Simulated scan of single mutants.
Amino acid sequence: MGTAAKFKVADFHCDALSKLQAEPDIDFNNDHRLDVTAERLAAGNVGLQVFAVYLSGTLGKPRFERILGQLELFRKRIICGEGLRWLRWKEETVVTSAPESAWAMLSLEGVDGLEGNLFYAELLFELGVRFLGITWNYANWAADGVLESRNGGFTEKGRQLIEWCNTSGMLLDVSHLSPAGFWELAERSTRPFIASHSNAAAVCGHPRNLSDEQIKAVIAMDGRIGLTFVPWFVRNGGGAKAEDLLKHIEHVCSLGGSRQLMFGSDFDGIDAWIEGLEHPGKYTELADLLLKHYPEDEVKGWLHGNAMRFLSTQLPSRVYL
């Protein structure tokens, strides 16, 4: 086994649950209709995969019951047998670095399906969800998304959601949030947040990427930025190769963010892929590429260590209950 193959990986965003909900006959173990499969996670030495609950508009109006449906898929199809273990508590991060361990977490991408009901948010926390992405690209009951032309911030109920998250231990994710919403959250939140799958706008000018000022704000609070593998977020015009990610790494590091950098692939949320990074089994090749350009300690941090250090301090403690 080469050096890179020994490096564990934490990936903070994939949309496999949406595909499993849309196509119930998909086999999570090895069905290549999925980017993320159990086989590919093992091949890429992915020690932590965050599974997003995303309610695609193609399946109808967002409802809480559809969120519950994806949670049940996660429990029955992802966390089963001797495969992935469910990471929910700060205390569990102590054992995640073990060579044989592989873990999964749950996030919500867009709070639309909570239907403006904070009790539903509390219930999701009790059911094991640990990250809330506030919006997808457009407006919902809590805030505006990044493609909403008015660029509004949070609603009053959205501000109540921020306060509840800060006190409960639910972590917040600003990928897809409007610029105005980002800055309002930065002002109101008492805890650091993440951008689970966003790149540097200075390198690729897509509106889903973060400005230098936003990157600096996340760095200052010791949040996390998960570089994503969406080709048109990596290189203007798309057609990206794995080497194009290095420009984003260089840029975030130039702003002081080496210890805040991680990855959030967006596998299964895309229908085009970076050449050489088509699925999580390719993470060992990414590690090889990174090791050609950067010190081993930094590469380990980007692939796994930075993410786990964040979780070890920011996840709620089991004594919460």
Rank of each mutant, 00 (worst) to 15 (best):
K157F: 05
L147M: 12
F182A: 05
V129C: 14
V129S: 12
N151V: 08
G153H: 00
L161I: 03
F131E: 07
I194Q: 02
F154C: 03
K157Q: 10
L171I: 09
G158K: 05
S189H: 08
V174D: 11
N151T: 11
R188M: 02
R191Q: 10
G152D: 00
A186N: 05
S178P: 11
S189V: 08
I162M: 08
G181N: 04
H176F: 09
A139F: 04
A180G: 00
F154H: 01
T155E: 03
P179G: 04
L185Q: 06
E184T: 01
G133I: 13
E184R: 02
A143K: 03
L171F: 07
V129Q: 12
T135Q: 05
K157P: 00
P179Q: 09
G152F: 00
L171Q: 09
H176N: 10
S178D: 10
H176A: 08
N137F: 13
V146M: 10
R130P: 15
R150V: 03
S178A: 14
F193K: 03
Q160M: 14
L161D: 04
G169N: 02
T190K: 15
L172P: 07
G145C: 12
S168A: 10
L172F: 13
L177R: 10
L177W: 11
G169S: 07
S189G: 08
N137L: 13
I162W: 06
E148L: 12
S178C: 11
G145S: 12
M170H: 04
E148M: 14
N151E: 13
S175L: 08
D173Y: 04
E148N: 13
D173V: 05
S178R: 11
R150S: 07
I194A: 01
L161W: 09
T167L: 15
F193M: 10
G133C: 12
G169A: 05
A180L: 01
G181L: 08
G169R: 06
A142D: 00
E148W: 14
A139Q: 12
L185T: 03
N137A: 15
M170C: 07
F154Q: 03
I134K: 07
G158W: 00
A143R: 03
G181T: 03
E148K: 13
R130K: 15
L132Y: 14
K157L: 13
E156K: 08
A139V: 08
I162K: 07
N166D: 15
W141A: 04
T167K: 15
L172E: 08
T155S: 14
G153L: 00
R159Y: 00
L161P: 04
N166A: 11
A195H: 02
S168H: 04
S175M: 06
H176Y: 11
F182M: 06
L171T: 04
E184H: 00
A186F: 05
E184N: 01
N151A: 11
E187A: 01
G133D: 12
A186I: 01
N140F: 08
T155R: 07
A139D: 10
A180F: 00
T155A: 07
D173M: 05
E187P: 00
P179D: 10
T167V: 12
L147R: 10
Q160F: 09
N151D: 15
S175R: 04
E148H: 14
E187Q: 02
A195W: 02
C165L: 06
T135M: 06
